[in-house]
Design a protein around this nucleic acid. Structure first.
Lengths: 198, 198
DNA sequence: GTCTATATTCCGATAGAC
DNA sequence: GTCTATCGGAATATAGAC
């Protein structure tokens, strides 16, 4: 389309700036300048900064999370669905720096309402899909914790990826999505498969 | 001591505010008011906001991380040092919300220099101590990744802990430090012990 | 729907008295 | 070492023309 949809342009530019610098570090002027409009224009499309932040975050989450559960559910029973989820989720977080940083910012800064929105819009469907993949022989509590651990280890790896070059013994190969995903898959398989007793 | 050390008081108050709200959301006025001094006083003790932020973060990290490696190294060979580390680190992150949030903020927002400082001041010594605990029979690369995974799963669990009540199947017991630490220890033991082949 | 112009508040930072 | 007073600029937000 030739006529740019200003509202969408504002949302995506704002989301990128918020992801990089944090909400409070980005002014309405900054967003307006980056989009190429005046600050007053932003107030035509959004009530104020709070609304712009909320809608920018929701815009990114809505775009990125819709495919996750669909792709998971489409996997046949014969495939390694846990490995598929790990590969997909690692790749999503490492490839889309905006999504990852907004996700972490919401997890750290979000109040109860925003955490609830986050749970329902981003993590609930993948959570349900993964719940059945790990620790089938265990109790409901153990399966719940195993699911959390699966998401946690992926999130933690990506969060630490920027730090790896500064730790002793690191090599560039350790930060690649492929290496991370492969390591996590192997680790989770060992941890949660066939553990009748220990 | 009766005479309050204003500088220390500024550092600790600032660190708490920065942890809760983020660096750019907290003004020098906010810090001064919370401490009970005037904004001009802050500029007597620190060159400006940048320096105050850096020193406040460094102050918290220096206090909290010194005991970690010492305690780890003091553990005898016969004890379960991996379990000890997991218990200690989970407890540290869950009990000290200021430390945890500052850590995550530095991981997400830090530039190369700050990440390097973070690696050396906080994570390098525990990293070395943990490196020998998991996956003894494996290659250097595998042990490196296993160490990262150990820290990652703990970090991820704490990061997700605020979200658990909003996920299906959760109970309050899942968010307790004891339950988290126990689950992670069991998981890591299964994942990294005695894996000659699979 | 986008602009110009502006109101009002808040920001980081400094000068100088005590 | 702490204060009062203040500067110059940037923040969010609004009014009203086009």
């Amino acid at each position: 389309m030739q006529i740019a949809d200003t509202r969408i342009s504002i949302l995506e530019t704002a989301a990128r700036l918020y992801a990089d610098l944090g909400y409070s570090a980005v002014s309405m002027r900054d967003v307006a300048t980056a989009v190429g409009v005046t600050p007053a224009n932003l107030y035509h499309h959004f009530k104020g900064k709070d609304e712009l932040v909320r809608e920018a975050v929701a815009h990114v989450f809505a775009q990125k999370t819709a495919p996750i559960a669909d792709l998971l559910d489409a996997q046949g029973e014969g495939t390694d669905r846990l490995k598929f989820f790990v590969d997909y989720f690692v790749r999503l977080l490492t490839d889309d720096w905006v999504f990852f940083r907004l996700l972490v910012r919401e997890l750290v800064d979000g109040d109860e309402k925003r955490l609830n929105d986050l749970a329902r819009s981003v993590l609930e469907r993948p959570f349900r899909s993964v719940s059945g993949l790990a620790g089938q022989g265990q109790s409901a509590d153990e399966r719940f914790m195993a699911t959390i651990s699966t998401i946690a280890v992926i999130l933690g790896h990506v969060l630490l990826s920027g730090l790896l070059p500064h730790l002793p013994g690191a090599s560039p190969d350790h930060s690649t999505p492929t290496a991370i995903a492969m390591h996590i898959s192997t680790m989770l398989r060992r941890a949660f498969q066939s553990n009748a007793k220990d």
